Computed example of a mutant assay.
Amino acid sequence: MRQLNAWKKMVSIISVATVLVTPLTGQAKDAVKIAFIGPLTGGVSSTGLGGRNSAQLAVDQYNADPAGKYQVELVKLDDECKPAVGVQVVTRAATDRSIVGAVGHYCSAVAIVTVDTFHRFGLPLVIWGAVLPEITYGNNYKEVHRVNGTMINEGKMAAEYVHKAGFKRVAMIYDTTDYGKGQGVHFTDALQQYPDITVTGSYGVDVSQQDFSAELTAAQRGNPDVIWFGGLTPQGVAIKAQLERIGISTPFIGVSGILNEGFIAGLGPAVAEGVVSFHNGAPIEKYAHGKEFLAAYGAAGFKEEPDAYGPFAYSATKLLIDAIEKVGPNRAKVRDALNATRDYESLVGTINFDEHRQNITSAHQYVVQDGKWVYWVDSKYGKGPQ
């Protein structure tokens, strides 16, 4: 509470200072627009709203600093986690020359079809959540950068967990978007180093599908020790709920697409209990400035939680703003400044872009315990027998 009050006091002082200093200098700050793009409605909106709020916090903190050169406006665009909608809103942002850069995309299926547009119009993009490797590694678009990790990391950690847990037989269910298929490929590749583990069956499901009884019945015939899911929250909830209804209690693990409050809310704490997931970010409070971020986020009065990807949206926004501060509101110059990112200290740790403008990160494991996602090593599951 003391830290929270101190933060509020600091913001008040900065705000007053801004009011006092600006009239004295007689210089109004130039306005600069950046875009936030993510799923603000639909089944994965909890992550999108947490990302939006976190990006807004970064903007507000910058604007409160009288030393900043510009007054930044965050233009918020809803891609609905739908590729066609994503192309529409990215085109709208890219053709608006007043928008200097974008912090974009949680859904890989959207990001992979919009990178061409960012490149064609020269709009710098910093990705805050999409994990499909091809978004950065599948092209040489200098406009496209990513602060979060990829599903390669997630797949390796999931395979390692399956091995350490002693599971020998794995059933795979994944959605047939680029995201789901990609997750399946990288998980399968990672399993190759464990020859004692067998994939008993692999089942692709459409994102509009609601009845999974055929796939679940077929999967159960293979007598799996664990069911792996590669997809997003809406289908993850539906599949886990149907498993519960037909009496299949096989352990359930999933990719980062289910690591959000919506997954637990959709199932209820009892059904979600013990589900394991993997994510390229550590718990917020584990970061060096994580508690400060949470205090500032709380003081800002946002209704939604920052969720697992909020820290990445915050870090991506600060990185973009700092590039604009350094070189000015020019798309080409901002792109080049972002390309050169090395040893940039952020909320989520040090950001270093490789030759594909991909930040180097590590994956982390989580589990649902008592109605919350808990860091595996801090959970009763991680401390006791698996």
Rank of each mutant, 00 (worst) to 15 (best):
V100L: 05
T150P: 08
N148K: 00
A94E: 05
H119T: 12
V113E: 15
M172T: 14
N140G: 14
F121K: 00
H105C: 06
E154R: 01
D175V: 08
E154K: 03
N148L: 05
E143Y: 11
K156Q: 13
A93Y: 06
A102N: 10
S108M: 06
E143I: 03
F118L: 07
F167A: 08
G86C: 02
N148S: 05
A109Q: 07
A109E: 14
V113N: 14
L132T: 09
G155C: 14
T176S: 14
R92W: 02
V85G: 03
P83E: 00
M151K: 02
R146M: 09
V162L: 12
A84D: 15
A165N: 04
V103G: 11
H145Y: 07
T91R: 06
H145W: 03
A109D: 15
A159N: 07
I135N: 02
V100E: 08
G166Q: 05
G122V: 01
K82F: 05
H145G: 03
G166F: 10
F118Q: 04
G122N: 01
L125C: 05
K142M: 13
D178A: 14
I127R: 01
G104N: 14
I152V: 13
M151N: 15
V100T: 12
R120P: 03
F118V: 07
H119D: 15
F167W: 07
A158G: 11
T150H: 06
V131W: 03
K164V: 12
R120A: 13
L132S: 09
V110P: 14
A102P: 12
S98W: 08
T150E: 04
L132M: 07
K168I: 09
H119R: 13
T176Q: 15
A94I: 07
V90S: 00
V170K: 05
I135C: 01
T176P: 12
H145R: 04
Y106I: 11
E160D: 15
G122A: 01
I112S: 14
V100P: 09
H145C: 11
G149S: 08
V90N: 00
V144F: 13
H119L: 03
G129C: 07
H105P: 13
A158N: 04
A84G: 05
G86Y: 02
S98L: 06
V170S: 07
R97M: 13
Y141G: 10
A171C: 10
L125Q: 15
T95L: 10
H163D: 11
V85C: 03
I135F: 03
D116G: 10
I135E: 01
R146K: 11
N139I: 08
V85I: 14
K142N: 13
G101L: 10
L125N: 14
G104V: 14
T95I: 04
V110Q: 04
R146E: 11
D116I: 09
Y161C: 04
F121Y: 15
R92S: 13
V147P: 10
G129T: 07
G122T: 01
I99H: 08
G104R: 07
F167R: 03
P133A: 01
V103C: 14
I152W: 04
V131G: 09
A165W: 12
T117R: 09
